[in-house]
Design a protein around this nucleic acid. Structure first.
Lengths: 237, 237
DNA sequence: CCGGATCCGAATCGATACTG
DNA sequence: CAGTATCGATTCGGATCCGG
């Protein structure tokens, strides 16, 4: 079952033969958040057919991108190899690039915990964070709840269950810090306009793009400075 | 003909919907070298079916990645939009990443002028070049001939016809400088091992991986320092 | 020659059902 | 939980054809 070859001897060609098939890079995206079980991946990619998922996992293993690891206390996870993890800057850059062409969501588009986690990573401005006080956010989008800790050393994101408890830390997601978040807020897809700077934080609250649940609403300003993607001149088609 | 959606509202997903389909990123790779005609693209991608090429070009235009430009003196070229050109660092990074997993070429793998041009760009070390004297190389691989000029300001590559004349500069490829190259050499697929550092320049000549046609063979050392991709720990699967 | 469009068999993908 | 099996819907590949 040799991957369908493009017939060229070239690094780019080799790369797309490894991770260019349908769904493959989205599997990598989710695995960049942490090791995941087959079922986790299936839930994080609701529209992937199960046969495609298992085929891709096999191909990614064969390509040295993904590794299948039996868990000590029963179970089984897939994780990126060191080589696969080196896709991180590429996937983040792709996410930033694609962000700028995102329109409004289709009717049945979903937001998953892993995709939102990676979206925040793509938008994270380390330089801005370093110049600002540390902050803890709790972000609700659809039924995804993220605990987002920012300080001068960087960004840490934990995925919470809607009930408020962290998912199993054994699977690579850090437990949240003990303290209460400085700001708890909920957003819909319009959070994109907050990150692009299309709407200012105050305006976002006014237009009900985001809703502050608790904490100082002024921190939304700091959030928007920390997570930002400049849309640039994307309109010049 | 809406692109097949992955059903997620996410920048990475949007990106792969724009450039993730088969052949799309290879078209982008070639257009990163310069504007190309339909026929140029077809020749640069020998195995692409013509209906796929025209479908991709339409999709890439619709996505704001590619633009169709009628040429003043008759003819017609495709070129990247400013938005599409921002894929350059991503494609270069992917090329570096894929390079490390390249094995030996399949029997019918080809090397095209554009793929080799981009391969040199992925391997180019600006820092190394800045610390070394300027140099002009003429590189022959299969029937591709490249004129490669390196100086402290960067890298310039021109594609020559096998006869030795430059291709039409109107199409975005710079004409070579007038002076003779400092080093003319020919290589086969084994040039990969030179760039990865797997074989040293002297050894490459001994083992006939490269053949110096004219000029100072010692310059091959400088070439290998200027164009290098560290294979890293790719074996750890 | 350039810039595609059309047709058709082969391969892949998607949806669902099913199993150890 | 971790996948296989099946099968219709799509897409891809290869070839041919066509208007300028």
């Amino acid at each position: 079952m040799a991957a369908r070859s493009y017939g060229q001897y070239c690094g780019v060609t080799t790369a797309v033969e490894l991770i260019g098939e349908r769904w493959a890079l989205l599997i990598v995206r989710d695995l960049l958040v942490g090791p995941r079980r087959y079922t986790d991946l299936k839930q994080g990619l609701p529209k992937i057919p199960t046969n495609i998922l298992s085929t891709r996992l096999k191909e990614l293993q064969e390509g040295g991108v993904v590794r299948r690891v039996p868990l000590p206390n029963c179970g089984l996870v897939y994780e990126l190899t060191p080589y696969g993890r080196e896709l991180e800057p590429i996937v983040l850059a792709l996410g930033r690039w694609g962000f700028r062409q995102m329109g409004d969501p289709a009717a049945d588009d979903v937001v998953t915990a892993d995709s939102l986690t990676m979206a925040l990573r793509t938008a994270f401005r380390a330089d801005a964070a370093a110049a600002l006080p540390a902050a803890d956010y709790e972000l609700h989008v659809a039924d995804v709840v993220l605990r987002v800790h920012v300080d001068s050393s960087g960004l840490r994101i934990a995925q919470l269950q809607p009930a408020g408890r962290p998912v199993d830390p054994k699977l690579g997601t850090q437990a949240p810090t003990a303290a209460d978040p400085d700001l708890v807020f909920a957003a819909g897809p319009g959070i994109r306009r907050l990150i692009s700077g299309e709407v200012a934080p105050a305006e976002a609250i006014d237009r009900e793009i985001v809703a502050v649940v608790s904490g100082d609403a002024g921190l939304l300003e700091r959030f928007a400075q920390t997570f930002h993607i400049d849309p640039g001149a994307v309109l010049a088609a």
